[in-house]
Design a protein around this nucleic acid. Sequence first.
RNA 1: GCGGGUGUAGCUCAGUUGGUUAGAGCGCCAGUUUGUGGUACUGGAUGUCGCCGGUUCGAACCCGGUCACUCGCCCCA
Length: 429
Amino acid sequence: MAKVSAKPLSGFIELKPLQQVKFNEIVDSLKQKLEIFGFMPLDLPIIERQEVLIDETDKNETQNQMYLFEKGENKLGLRFDGTVGLARFVAGNANDLTFPFRRYQVGRNFRGERPQKGRYREFYQCDFDIIGENTLDSSYEFEIINLIYELFETLKPYVGDVIIKVGSRKILNEIFNYLDIEESVRQNILIFIDKKMKVSRDELVEMMQEYIGQAKAEKLYEIIEGDYKKLQGLTPELDEKIAELSVIADMIVNITGAKNVEFDLSIVRGLGYYTGVVFEVFLKNEPSLGSVCGGGRYDNLSDKFSSRKFVGVGGAIGVSRLFVPMIESGAIKLDKNLVDVVVIAMNASNNSYAQVTGNRLRDAGIKTIVNIDSSKFKKKLENANKLDAKYIVVIGDDEEVEQLVTLKNMDTGESEKISVNQVIEKLGK
RNA sequence: GCGGGUGUAGCUCAGUUGGUUAGAGCGCCAGUUUGUGGUACUGGAUGUCGCCGGUUCGAACCCGGUCACUCGCCCCA
């Protein structure tokens, strides 16, 4: 009989236990840092109603990638990021929340797109946002960037150095005004600017000049290529926006010493709903992965759910995108020794004493597996060896009579007959 | 949705101009006698050569189709 394929679906990730341990470790370190910053956990549903997921006013690519299905009369779908659920939640619970509301969420998201390196159909994202009612001043943009800096400091042992690139949609808008670029082509131009890292100067200018002519295209390239602070004096509105970003930039420089943070007007984050400061994070070791974290300021979070106005600034770390390629390349080292001790009973008559011993070790916080199966002693030793146990505890008739155990160090091969209390003393944390 | 690449053992891959029973390394299993593993030695199992069709005396190899995987594009974490 033909067997069903045992492989997971393409684009869906399965971690092996040792990898999962490392993954959990990374996620835990992120959560810990977020809570230190006063962000509250929020674990929203993975399935939402389609009307929550689908934005009728903006038919974009993401919509083609959604997993949609029906259950009876209900039209449902899997969430594709953490923001849609957040928008619904904030609108629905506004009276109970204290604004600015800081929340985080680490969870699975789903997009039915063509998988490739660092892109999956099911992936973990760590979302964090600060939501304000009506307004949220620009100091919160600093807070988020500072938070991202700190989050990647904690990730440094795993993924190495990063570069955080910060741009500003507001400044770009004023530049568009200054260059007198028509409203109708701005979206197109933004998409082109977004590609700056991938294409050459000439290619980018060529793409843009179709919409705004060669002179403006070259001028625009020169502007986004250069330092935003040098743009002062062009228009009063532009100066104002530059001053606003400068305040944030200065704070960042003060706190971080500007290490790993760059200001770059070519960061626009495509067509997203962003309206102000935007940012993306890249790995220095693995820039081809693309951005591993992105976010920015948005002004219309919950418009479709509420007549109250909520604005926010937030970001998301692509945890799967970070983790999976690094684990495959060996950049993230896996720990073994997940088991401290394997207790081995020599004979069936020793099983009960072995179990009691195992529980005493576990009570002392020692990770313990008890092996009382009927295989040969040698097999049990091999098994303990494959589990990378640091120690084994052997229990036979002699030990049971003397109420002792034999502790063997699996690295050195040395063994000694001691009491369980002595074992705990020796191995206990 | 659009392009490129690849499908041979659990994994990584060889496989000559088409020619007998399709191979290696790693892994897995067993053994090298009784309460001591990792190393070594010996032996063993496992394949519809992705699938369907065609050419041929003969196909893993050539041709057509199809599916899957993968890397790019679009878009994005």
